[in-house]
Design a protein around this nucleic acid. Structure first.
Length: 567
RNA sequence: GCGCCCGUAGCUCAAUUGGACAGAGCAUCUGCCUUCUAAGCAGACGGUUGAAGGUUCGAGUCCUUCCGGGCGUACCA
C-alpha cells in the first residue's frame, strides 16, 4: 500500500476533470496541523490556467473522490489541499501479518555495480560507502521485485600488479607477508622506488601478465585469490550480500578490449591524437574549443579503465539484458562516467532504453574537514574499525546487562557495533562529503542503529513477558489514541519510502523513515501500556507492536543491519 | 584558466527536488526508573541557511556576482 501514489492518482483525476494535466505533487504533511498528506500542485496548476489557486482548489475538491481514504480534506494557505486519512482506511491496510512490501508494477533487470576495491591493497574505510550503500540499494530493489545482478568490479589489472607480482616472486608465494596485504604493498612499493632493477622487472611483469604468460598468470591468480579471500572476509563480517560469485573483475573484460576499439573505429568515432586512440565528442569540448578526449588506447598500446567500462556496458546489454545500471563510485569519477555513457550511446553498445546511472558519493574528510589523505599510515583499515566497534559495543552490553552470558553478549556486541558503523554511513545523504570520526561512527544513542535495534528488542520483550506468540496475532491495527494514529500513518509509508530509495539510490531516506517510526513507536510505548491493557485494547496494541516490529526488522534488514530479540 | 560539487544551530547531519513557522542527534541545562528494557521518555537552550542582489503567490533549494573549501580537467583508477 502506497497512500501517496493512491492520493496522487485521485488528485490528478480530479485535476483532469477541472481541465488541468498538472502534477498533483502529493507528499506527506510537513506539519501535524496539516493532516497526514498535503497537495502542493494546485498553485502551479492555477497559474498555468490563469485562475485563482484557491478557486481551483475548491473545484478540485469538488471533483475529488476520496471518501474511502480520507475523513478530512481542507484547503489551506494559498491553495494547499490537506488530507487526513480516515481510521478505517488506516486499519484496513494495517493487517498484522500481511506482506509489508508489494512488488513494483514494472519490474526491471538491474545491475548494481558496487564495492569494487582495488585488490592491490587491503580494504580501508574509504571502501565502506560504496560497499554498504550499494548493498542496501541492491536489497531494496529486490524487495520491490526487481531482478538484481550484483557486480563487484574489482581492480585487478592495473600496472601496480606487476610490482606486486615481482615482489611475490622474490619473497616466495607462501610468504607470511601476504597475511597483511597493506604491509605487502608497502614493502613492494618501497622496493620499487629504491631499486631500479626491481622496477624494471615489475614493468616487464605487467607486459608478461597482460600478454598471457602462463607463469605470470599463475602467480597473479595466487595473489588475487588471497586478496579476494580477504575482501570476502570483510564482506561477511559486514553482513553484505556480496559473494565471490559477484566478482566481475576488470581483467574479465581484457579479451574484449580490442574489439571495443574496433567497434568504435567502425562507427567512425575513433581519432588518433598524440599516438593515442581517442573518442572526441562535441558535448565534451572545453569552452575555448579544445577537445576533451576519452582515451581508449594509450600510445604504448595499453588500454585504460574507459575501455574496460565500455566493455562492461556492452556485456551488460548484450549478455545480461539489463534495463538499468547503477554505479556506486565516488564523485570524482563523475566526468568519466558522463563521457563513458555518452560514448556507449553513440557507439550503440547499449540500447536506448537502457539506463546508466552514476550514483556518486562524497569524499571522506578527516575531523578537521580536510581530505582524508591516503598517505602511508593514515588510512584506517576496515577490520580495525570493525574491531573497535565491537569492543565498544561489548563494553556497553556488559555494563548495561551484566547478567547476559558472554556468548550472547558478544553476539549482541557484534550486531550493535557493526550496525552502528553501517548506519553512520547509510544515514547521511549519499552525495555529501562525510567526516570520518571514530566517536561519531561508533555512537550508540540518538539517531543510530542501536536505537532502532533497541526499539525492536523492547517489542520482542513485550511478547516474551506476556508469553504471547507474535506469529499468531491476527486482525488489523485500529488507531484509537492519537499516538496510535501517528504510528499508523508512519507504518503505512514504508512502501512509498522504499520506492523512493530505489528510484534515487538514497538509503538515508530509509534511515530517516525508520528513525521516525521508532520514535513514534516509543512515544506510543510510553503512553499506552500494552500488557496491562485488557480485551480488545490489548489485542489492538499488540497488533501495533507486531506490525512495528516487522517493519523495523525488514527495514533494518534492507539496510543490512541485524535485529536482536534481546540487548 | 575552465568545468562539476559543497558552505544550514558549538559539533555531526536532515529538509520529500520550488511549498506553509528550516527539523533531528550529540553537547549543555531541568524533570522522569518498586509499573511491558533509562541504549529510553518529556522539556529548555541553540539559526540573518557563507555574503549581496534577482526571479515569484512562495527560495536553504532556481539565476547573477563575490567570498571560502573540495574534486576533476589526455594516456592512473
Amino acid at each position: 500500500m502506497n497512500p501517496r501514489a493512491l492520493l496522487t492518482e485521485r488528485f490528478e483525476a480530479a485535476l483532469e476533470a477541472c481541465g488541468s494535466d498538472a502534477p498533483a505533487l502529493v507528499q506527506s504533511a510537513s506539519k501535524p496541523e496539516f493532516g497526514h498528506y498535503q497537495t502542493n500542485g494546485i498553485m502551479a496548476a492555477a497559474k498555468r490556467m490563469g485562475t485563482n489557486p484557491r478557486d481551483l482548489a475548491a473545484k478540485v475538491v469538488g471533483q475529488l473522490a476520496i471518501a474511502d481514504i480520507a475523513e478530512g480534506v481542507e484547503i489551506a494557505g494559498p491553495g494547499f489541499i490537506n488530507i487526513t486519512l480516515s481510521d478505517a482506511f488506516l486499519a484496513e491496510h494495517l493487517d498484522v501479518d500481511a506482506p509489508l512490501v508489494q512488488p513494483n508494477a514494472d519490474v526491471q533487470r538491474v545491475v548494481v555495480d558496487y564495492s569494487s576495491p582495488n585488490l592491490a591493497k587491503e580494504m580501508h574505510v574509504g571502501h565502506l560507502r560504496s560497499t554498504i550503500i550499494g548493498d542496501a540499494i541492491a536489497r531494496v530493489l529486490e524487495a520491490l521485485g526487481h531482478t538484481v545482478v550484483r557486480q563487484n568490479h574489482v581492480g585487478d589489472w592495473g600496472t601496480q600488479f606487476g610490482m606486486l607480482l615481482a615482489y611475490l616472486r622474490e619473497s616466495g608465494a607462501e610468504s607470511s607477508l601476504l597475511s597483511d596485504l597493506e604491509e605487502f604493498y608497502r614493502a613492494a612499493k618501497q622496493r620499487f622506488d629504491n631499486d631500479p632493477e626491481f622496477a624494471q622487472r615489475s614493468r616487464s611483469m605487467v607486459v608478461a601478465l597482460q600478454g598471457g604468460d602462463a607463469d605470470a598468470r599463475t602467480q597473479w591468480q595466487h595473489f588475487i585469490d588471497i586478496s579476494l579471500a580477504h575482501c570476502q572476509a570483510v564482506y561477511d563480517r559486514l553482513g553484505t550480500t556480496l559473494t565471490l560469485a559477484d566478482v566481475r573483475a576488470e581483467s574479465a573484460y581484457n579479451d574484449e578490449l580490442p574489439s571495443i576499439k574496433d567497434a568504435l573505429a567502425a562507427r567512425g568515432l575513433l581519432t588518433e591524437s598524440d599516438g593515442a586512440q581517442c573518442v572526441f565528442l562535441d558535448e565534451f569540448k572545453r569552452k575555448d574549443g579544445t577537445p576533451l578526449p576519452v582515451i581508449v588506447q594509450k600510445s604504448d598500446g595499453g588500454y585504460l579503465y574507459s575501455t574496460t567500462d565500455l566493455a562492461a556496458i556492452r556485456y551488460r546489454a548484450d549478455q545480461l539484458d539489463i534495463d538499468r545500471v547503477l554505479y556506486f563510485t565516488d564523485a570524482r569519477q563523475a566526468l568519466h562516467f558522463r563521457q563513458i555513457f555518452a560514448v556507449a550511446a553513440k557507439a550503440r553498445f547499449k540500447p536506448q532504453s537502457m539506463s546508466l546511472e552514476h550514483m556518486p558519493f562524497g569524499n571522506m574528510l578527516d575531523k578537521n574537514g580536510k581530505p582524508f589523505k591516503t598517505r602511508a599510515g593514515s588510512v584506517v583499515k576496515l577490520t580495525e574499525l570493525l574491531d573497535e566497534a565491537e569492543q565498544r559495543a561489548l563494553a556497553l552490553v556488559e555494563q548495561k546487562n551484566p547478567e547476559i552470558d558472554t556468548a550472547e553478549a558478544s553476539r549482541i556486541a557484534k550486531a550493535v557495533g557493526i550496525g552502528a558503523v553501517k548506519y553512520a554511513d547509510l544515514s547521511k545523504h549519499r552525495t555529501s562529503d562525510y567526516v570520518f570520526d571514530w566517536d561519531l561512527m561508533l555512537a550508540f544513542e540518538g539517531n543510530t542503529s542501536p536505537y532502532l535495534q533497541y526499539a525492536f528488542a523492547r517489542i520482542q520483550s513485550i511478547f516474551r513477558r506476556g508469553e504471547i506468540d507474535a506469529e499468531r496475532l491476527t486482525g488489523k491495527a485500529m488507531p484509537v489514541a492519537d499516538v496510535e494514529r501517528d504510528l499508523a500513518v508512519v507504518l503505512l509509508r514504508f512502501q512509498e519510502v522504499l520506492e523512493q530509495v530505489a528510484a534515487e539510490g538514497l538509503p538515508h531516506l530509509l534511515c530517516g523513515y525508520l528513525y521516525e517510526l521508532a520514535t513514534k513507536f516509543t512515544r506510543f510505548y510510553e503512553q499506552c501500556p500494552i500488557l496491562t491493557a485488557e480485551g480488545e485494547a490489548k489485542q489492538n496494541r499488540l497488533r501495533f507492536s507486531r506490525r512495528t516490529a516487522r517493519t523495523l526488522k525488514q527495514g533494518l534488514n534492507l539496510l543490512g543491519i541485524e535485529t536482536l530479540d534481546r540487548m
